[in-house]
Design a protein around this nucleic acid. Structure first.
Length: 477
RNA sequence: GGUCUCAUCGUCUAACGGUUAGGACACCAGGUUUUCAUCCUGGCAAUCGGAGUUCGAUUCUCCGUGAGAUCACCA
């Protein structure tokens, strides 16, 4: 029974943007830390200088921040085990490597690239898997840091437990003398993450399935170092919408920040990404973030890969938008108003927002849905000609109906209720069906393909605007 | 090719070895005095194949098949 505090980490390499796969790994590690008062650590694994992408580290920080996946220790805020950037921890890896050399578990790799290549070729020719340890030198030179340092492996069968996949096992032939330190002085991921996780007292390693094949080699390193390994949890892949491949940048994996810019709520992204491979066993689909933190458990994570379905994401975003209070939603849509709303008052905008809240799938929809509330729409008579019922009316009849509407609405108090009353009376006066009368008025005041309920729309537009637009429509005929 | 992993509606998924295999997305059809959306009702749709264990397998075992991952001085 361990009483130690749970410490999980997300350890991305700064080689690109944050896509959903990376976010999910971070998210689940964050859930595990947050549901137990543990700590969530962010560590930058920048040991491959060649692949490093400028600005990527800032981008990762920005993406996590935008989603509210907060860390307790990391490159930007420090912590008790700083630094949290691997390129700044070279001395630490060197010291741990020296320990292995001292106990005879690591040695300098004396071969040139061509020699190594020849070994590989011959293994391939014999249809055998290449194992470096079969060529392990008898008397390797002392390691001076200019050649790779390799683990002197101790091949043996391994079995271990994975919180998601269950009990796993492998045979000795997968263990090899893998590289610990590269000739450029940087450690490999294989070595560095083990050292760092140990130094930083990480209790759970939550990572993608691509690492599972290397796991036995990692276990061999833990053994050589004589340290206990953390709890392992392997996440299934997220696959691209088409095909069966793991979702990668080339398959159209989008930057999570792009989803936010497109009007998806952070809580939607969290809920959706979590639902890709996890559920709480009930029929609940929509979760708040605190609910997910409370209910998440690694043993209910799916073993097989999941596909990213944008339609479902869109639906889920609508659900979360509807869950928001008007004030909260108002605060979130600040960047999504149409240009025409620039000078509109907060009161007016809130009124309009309240009308369209149920209609938004993404915040981006706001602009096209509300433009006519803030600016004079351009009449488009093809909308009337294109309407099955309205196209049957003569221009004179249209004019008459609109004029009747003007007369009645002039007398209305112009609250939504009063307007509805007026509209109902108008149906009797004109003897028309709602499908004709209401459609006509709706188009004449909005010239939009769709709009909220007619009485609400008219009320928010205001009597003056409504009458003005109706008159404009009459005289245009 | 070696090694490892996985396998329920088109998609995300539920189901102490006993259920008419459930829910959600999508799709289709209706309903809520116009439209679009919301909301409600209904419909379509799945246990990869074959053995075995068992009174009884989606569930356990084995063999196939399919899919994925990995075999770098990348992570």
């Amino acid at each position: 029974m361990s009483h130690s505090v749970i410490r999980t980490r997300f350890a991305p390499s700064p080689t690109g943007f944050m896509h959903v796969g990376g976010i999910r790994t971070a998210l689940f590690a964050w859930f595990v830390a947050r549901q137990s008062e543990g700590a969530f650590i962010l560590r930058l694994e920048d040991t491959d200088q060649k692949r490093e992408v400028e600005g990527s580290a800032d981008h990762i920080l920005a993406a996590l921040g935008a989603l509210g996946i907060t860390h307790d220790e990391g490159p930007d805020i420090g912590g008790p085990y700083a630094p949290y950037v691997q390129s700044e921890r070279l001395d630490i890896y060197k010291a741990w490597a020296q320990k292995l050399i001292d106990v005879g578990r690591a040695y300098a790799d004396p071969y040139t690239a061509t020699e190594l290549e020849a070994f590989r070729e011959s293994a391939k020719a014999n249809k055998k898997a290449f194992l470096y340890r079969e060529h392990r030198p008898e008397n390797p030179p002392e390691w001076d840091g200019t050649t790779p340092l390799r683990l002197k492996s101790d091949p043996k069968p391994y079995q271990w437990h994975d919180e998601v996949l269950g009990d796993l096992s492998t045979s000795p032939e997968v263990i090899d003398d893998i590289i610990l330190m590269k000739s450029d002085g940087f450690p490999t991921y294989n070595f560095a993450h083990i050292v760092d996780d140990a130094e930083m007292k990480i209790t759970h390693i939550i990572r993608g399935q691509e690492f599972i094949a290397s796991q036995p080699n990692y276990l061999n390193i833990y053994d050589a170092l004589e340290i206990d390994h953390p709890i392992f949890a392997t996440m299934p892949h997220i696959m691209a919408e088409a095909g069966n491949k793991k979702l990668g940048k080339r398959d159209g994996a989008k930057d999570v920040l792009d989803y936010l810019k497109d009007g998806y709520l952070p809580e939607t992204m969290i809920n959706f990404i979590a639902s890709l491979g996890w559920n709480d066993g009930t029929e609940q689909e929509i979760f708040t973030i605190p609910e997910m933190i409370e209910k998440f458990s690694l043993d209910r994570v799916q073993k097989s890969g999941a596909r990213f379905d944008e339609k479902r994401l869109e639906w889920m975003n609508g659900q979360h938008i509807r869950l928001l209070s008007l004030d909260d939603l108002y605060a979130r849509v600040a960047d999504f108003w149409p240009e025409s709303a620039k000078d509109a008052t907060e009161d007016k905008k809130k009124l309009v927002l309240g009308l369209v809240q149920d209609r938004l799938k993404t915040l981006k929809d706001l602009a096209i849905l509300t433009d006519y509330f803030f600016t004079e729409p351009t009449p488009d008579w093809s909308m009337i000609e294109g309407n099955k019922q309205l196209s049957k009316l003569e221009p004179v009849e249209i004019n008459t109906l609109l004029s009747e509407a003007i007369v009645s609405l002039e007398e209305s108090e112009f609250t939504p209720e009063a307007i509805q009353e007026t509209l109902n009376q108008l149906l009797e006066i004109t003897g028309q069906k709602p499908g004709i009368l209401f459609s006509l008025i709706r188009l004449a005041v909005s010239w939009a393909p769709f709009s909220p309920a007619l009485n609400d729309t008219l009320a928010v537009l205001g009597k003056d605007t409504v009458l003005e637009r109706l008159r404009a429509a009459t005289s245009a005929q």
